[in-house]
Amino acid sequence: MPSETPQAEVGPTGCPHRSGPHSAKGSLEKGSPEDKEAKEPLWIRPDAPSRCTWQLGRPASESPHHHTAPAKSPKILPDILKKIGDTPMVRINKIGKKFGLKCELLAKCEFFNAGGSVKDRISLRMIEDAERDGTLKPGDTIIEPTSGNTGIGLALAAAVRGYRCIIVMPEKMSSEKVDVLRALGAEIVRTPTNARFDSPESHVGVAWRLKNEIPNSHILDQYRNASNPLAHYDTTADEILQQCDGKLDMLVASVGTGGTITGIARKLKEKCPGCRIIGVDPEGSILAEPEELNQTEQTTYEVEGIGYDFIPTVLDRTVVDKWFKSNDEEAFTFARMLIAQEGLLCGGSAGSTVAVAVKAAQELQEGQRCVVILPDSVRNYMTKFLSDRWMLQKGFLKEEDLTEKKPWWWHLRVQELGLSAPLTVLPTITCGHTIEILREKGFDQAPVVDEAGVILGMVTLGNMLSSLLAGKVQPSDQVGKVIYKQFKQIRLTDTLGRLSHILEMDHFALVV
């Protein structure tokens, strides 16, 4: 994948999101292997301009796509893939009243899908469409860049269908997702969380590099694949309309690839034109409109599966009536509230959605109805927002919020430890010299600072030695090549209790 991002070429006709291997024109390309080798690009942008032909009021008969309808489940399912879809609609009884809503608040519980998330729908649909058009064949390999849930859905379907599955996901995604993927037989590649989507090191860039190296491999490409919004247009939206008897006044959905909100909203605009569509985008993402909503100094966020630093091709923002931004604290607070007060075992993005819903639905009156999409299960986040310690460490809970008995030293300040200034190293000294210094002084790690004293990161003896043994660096290389740029900081005025929580999850903390 090139470091400079080429513009994806656009073909003359058809839909841009065809499933299957992508040609340089962004659509299915038939021909000899030699032709494909000559024409197939190194990668295709996940934010390529959409060429979708959908228009409100256009006859369904003019759609270029294969459409399906929700099917009634048999008493005995032939395999677990038949437990994807037909998820329950559940009334939220307490939270709406707590925040003064007059309307009825309903939750579409997508964590009841077989793999635990709304992404099971698009995973199965992308595979079925690729099999139907002859792209996927027995023994082929599926590769997908994902925040985890699409990966789980694909790995689940691949396990049943017999495909090899490789999932490329950023490091910030939970260990629970990784464990589930491994249990399903998927191979996992992790990428830096802070890598831009168009960087060769991003999950998108690495996935395309693997595709170019592995024979008979395919990126189904949830960011561009029409099967993504079509899955929701054909099934999720129809289920909502049936469950609500066609009567709903507002739908609120958090947005990642945009397939969920695009597919549902398009069908609702056709069948229930008075329904307002509300999009939820986390602070630090750029999906919301108008652009002024996205202006923030924050560039990272903890909530998973929603928000991006690019506009995915499948996201149709014209069908969203209003956007709201959400933050991590309210997302996790509301997710825990949904679990504790409503018994809905949902993930953090569901918290984002409901946090926005109780604001947006203030305009609705008694007798009206708001539906929220709860995308995934708490299963993926047992060591994250479900953990009091994690919430404390991230600053989303305060010590006084917890009532468990603490040891005698818990409320003492870090400054009472009488710490001395640490050994520091410059980023320009060599790895070999740094190892000598650390061994001589008896230290395992040291902060790396520039000549102005600005902290650049941390270097550890173990990481340097393993990097040297693996051949990633040489003793003569500058130590700046092996620094940890993500590390926890703590102030002298913070409590030892807070430091204790940090050290339970990290090997060190830097006192500043």
Score class of each variant (00 low, 15 high):
Pro2Lys: 07
Ala8Met: 06
Glu9Phe: 10
Thr13Tyr: 05
Gly14Ala: 07
Gly14Leu: 13
Arg18Thr: 11
Arg18Tyr: 14
Ser23Trp: 14
Ala24Gly: 12
Lys25Asp: 15
Lys25Met: 11
Ser27Gln: 11
Ser27Ile: 11
Leu28Phe: 06
Lys30Asn: 11
Lys36Ser: 03
Ala38Asn: 10
Leu42Pro: 09
Ile44Pro: 11
Arg45Ser: 09
Pro46Thr: 00
Pro46Phe: 02
Pro46Lys: 01
Pro46Met: 01
Asp47Tyr: 01
Ala48Trp: 09
Arg51Gln: 09
Arg51Leu: 04
Cys52Asn: 00
Thr53Asn: 11
Gln55Met: 12
Leu56Gln: 10
Gly57Trp: 09
Gly57Val: 11
Gly57Ala: 15
Pro59Ile: 14
Pro59His: 10
Ala60Asp: 06
Ser63Ala: 11
Pro64Gln: 06
Pro64Met: 08
His67Lys: 10
Thr68Ile: 15
Ala71Leu: 13
Lys72Leu: 13
Ser73Phe: 14
Pro74Leu: 15
Ile76Ser: 08
Pro78Glu: 06
Asp79Gln: 08
Asp79Pro: 04
Lys82Asp: 05
Lys83Met: 07
Asp86Cys: 07
Asp86Ile: 09
Thr87Val: 02
Thr87His: 00
Pro88Met: 04
Val90Glu: 02
Lys98Ser: 14
Phe99Gln: 08
Gly100Glu: 09
Leu101Met: 06
Leu106Arg: 10
Leu106Lys: 09
Lys108Cys: 00
Lys108Gln: 03
Phe111Trp: 05
Phe111Ile: 04
Ala114Gly: 11
Gly115Cys: 08
Gly116Trp: 13
Gly116His: 13
Val118Ser: 07
Val118Arg: 03
Lys119Arg: 05
Lys119Asp: 02
Lys119Glu: 06
Arg121Asn: 01
Ile122Pro: 00
Ser123Ala: 12
Arg125Cys: 08
Arg125Ala: 12
Arg125Ser: 12
Glu128Lys: 10
Ala130His: 01
Asp133Arg: 10
Gly134His: 08
Thr135Arg: 11
Lys137Ala: 09
Pro138Met: 07
Gly139Tyr: 08
Gly139Lys: 01
Asp140His: 05
Ile142Asn: 01
Ile142Phe: 08
Ile142Val: 13
Ile143Trp: 01
Glu144Gln: 06
Pro145Val: 03
Ser147Glu: 03
Asn149Glu: 03
Thr150Gln: 02
Thr150Gly: 04
Gly151His: 00
Ile152Gly: 00
Ile152Arg: 00
Gly153Ala: 02
Leu156Met: 07
Leu156Glu: 01
Ala158Tyr: 01
Ala159Asn: 07
Cys165Val: 05
Cys165Glu: 01
Ile166Trp: 01
Ile166Ala: 04
Pro170Tyr: 04
Glu171Thr: 05
Met173Phe: 02
Met173Cys: 06
Ser175Ile: 15
Glu176His: 00
Lys177Asp: 00
Val178Lys: 07
Arg182Pro: 02
Arg182His: 09
Leu184Ile: 10
Leu184Ser: 06
Glu187Gly: 07
Arg190Gly: 04
Thr191Glu: 01
Thr191Cys: 05
Pro192Ile: 06
Thr193Lys: 10
Asn194Asp: 13
Ala195Leu: 03
Ala195Trp: 06
Ala195Glu: 08
Ser199Ala: 04
Pro200Ala: 08
Glu201Ala: 05
His203Gly: 05
Val206Gln: 06
Arg209Glu: 10
Leu210Pro: 01
Lys211Gly: 06
Asn212Gln: 13
His218Asn: 12
Ile219Asn: 09
Ala226Gly: 06
Asn228Gln: 01
Leu230Gln: 08
Ala231Gln: 07
Ala231Lys: 07
His232Trp: 00
Tyr233Gly: 02
Tyr233Trp: 15
Thr236Met: 09
Thr236Lys: 06
Thr236Gln: 02
Ala237Pro: 07
Cys244Val: 13
Cys244Gln: 06
Leu248Gln: 09
Leu248Glu: 03
Asp249Arg: 07
Val252Asp: 11
Ala253Tyr: 06
Ala253Gln: 08
Val255Lys: 03
Gly256Arg: 00
Gly258Val: 00
Gly258Arg: 00
Gly263Ile: 00
Ile264Val: 13
Ile264Asn: 12
Leu268Arg: 01
Leu268Trp: 01
Leu268Thr: 04
Cys272His: 12
Cys272Glu: 05
Gly274Trp: 14
Gly274Ile: 12
Gly274Tyr: 12
Arg276Trp: 12
Arg276Asp: 04
